[in-house]
Simulated scan of single mutants.
Amino acid sequence: MLSSLHVKLNAINNNKYFQAFTVVVIILAALTIGAKTFELPDALSGAIQWLDVFILLFFLIEIIIKFFSYQNKLNFFKSGWNLFDTVIVIGSLIPTAGQGILIARLLRVFRVLRLVSAVPQLKLLINALFKAIPKMGYIAVLMFIIFYIYAVIGSLVFSDINEELWGDVSISMLTLFRIATFEDWTDVMYETMAVYPISWVYYLTFIFLTAFVFLNMMIGVVIETMTAEHALAEKDNESELPQLTADHQTRQIFATHQQVQSLHQELEEIKALLKSKPHQ
C-alpha cells in the first residue's frame, strides 16, 4: 500500500500540469504580497486574505506530496531546495500577530523565492552561481588588495585637496568605489588634476583594472560555471536513456516477405515431423 502511494504521489509531483499550477500559485503569492502594500477596499482585502489562505494550504499540501513521493524519506532532507521550501512553508504558518508578526511577514515575502525551486532552469542558474562564488571570492580578494593600495595612495596624495573624499583609507575606498561604478568620477578626477595634472594616470589605471579586468574575470567565471552546469545537466538527462556502445551491433528489425515465407515453410516442416513421429 505504501509502495503504491509512493508511486502515485511521485507521479503527481512530476506531473507537468501540477508543476505548472505550482508556478502559477507562487506567482499569485507574489502578487498578493505586493497588493497588501496598497490601500485596498475592504472587499478586495478580504478576497486577498482568502486567497492567501488558499496559497498557504496549497503550499502545505504540495510539500507533503513532495515528502511522501520519496521512497526513502531521508533523501528528501538531502536536497537543499527541499529544506528551503520546508522552512518557507513552516514559517508561513506562524500567526501574523504579536511579536512574530514581522518574522511571519518576512517569511511570506520569501515565498516568492519558491519560484526558483519550482523552475528547473532557475535552479540551474542558482546552482551555477553558488558554485562560482568560491572562484569569485579569490577575485574579490585581489580586488580588495588593489582597492586598498589605491586608497592608501589617494589618501596620501589627495587628502589636502579634498578631505571629504580622501581623508583616510576607509573614505578613500568609498571614493574609489564611486569611481569604479562611474558615478561622477570625472568630477573627482578634474578636481585633483587642477593640482596634479598627471593624476589622470591614477584614475585610468584604477578603472582599467577594476571595471575592465576584474569585472570581465567575474563574468568569465560565471559563464564557465554555467556552461559546466548545463553540460552536467545534459549528461544527466542523457544517462537516463539507453546508450549504445561499440559492443552493440546493428540488427535488422524488419524481415522481408521472402524471409517470412521461408520461416513459415520451416515451421510447417517441423509440425509435419512432429505429427509423423510415433508415440512412445
Rank of each mutant, 00 (worst) to 15 (best):
E224H: 10
V119W: 05
A47D: 06
F68A: 12
F68S: 09
K277V: 00
M1Y: 07
D184I: 01
M136E: 14
Y190F: 09
I126Q: 11
M217A: 14
Q258E: 08
K8C: 08
I153A: 15
H248M: 10
K66R: 07
L2I: 12
R111S: 10
I63E: 13
D168F: 05
I133H: 02
T22S: 14
L176K: 10
I145M: 09
L2W: 11
A118L: 02
V112S: 10
F54C: 07
Y70H: 09
N75P: 01
R251A: 11
A35F: 04
M226Q: 12
K271N: 00
D160V: 05
Q258D: 04
F144I: 08
Q261Y: 01
G91A: 07
S45Y: 02
A272T: 06
M193T: 04
F212A: 06
S239R: 14
E229V: 03
T245H: 04
I198N: 08
T32P: 00
I90D: 00
G167D: 14
R114A: 02
V87H: 01
Q49C: 02
F68C: 09
T175E: 05
N14V: 04
N127L: 01
V116H: 04
T186S: 10
A97M: 07
Q49P: 00
F58K: 07
V112R: 03
A231L: 09
F254K: 08
S117H: 02
L51G: 15
P197N: 12
A128F: 02
K123C: 03
K16T: 15
V116P: 03
L107D: 08
I145L: 14
D52R: 12
W50N: 15
D168Y: 07
F38T: 14
F214M: 13
S172M: 07
L174H: 15
A35P: 05
L31I: 12
F147E: 11
I198H: 05
Y196H: 14
N10W: 06
A128D: 11
K73L: 00
L215Y: 08
A97T: 13
V24N: 13
H230F: 03
I63K: 12
A211R: 06
T181K: 10
T192F: 02
L273D: 03
V157D: 09
Q280L: 06
E266C: 00
I219T: 12
I161Y: 07
E191T: 15
N237D: 06
V169Q: 09
I198T: 12
F54R: 03
L124D: 08
N127A: 07
I219W: 04
V213L: 13
P278Y: 03
K73E: 00
T250S: 14
P134K: 14
F54L: 10
V112T: 13
H279I: 11
M189E: 12
F38Q: 15
I90Q: 00
Y148R: 01
E164Y: 08
E39Y: 00
L51A: 15
Y17S: 14
K271P: 00
E191N: 14
V188I: 11
I145H: 07
P41E: 03
E62P: 00
I103R: 12
W166Q: 12
I207K: 03
F18S: 14
S92C: 04
M226E: 11
F130H: 08
M173L: 13
I198S: 11
L102V: 05
S92Q: 02
L74Y: 01
M173Q: 11
L165A: 14
I207C: 02
A180E: 09
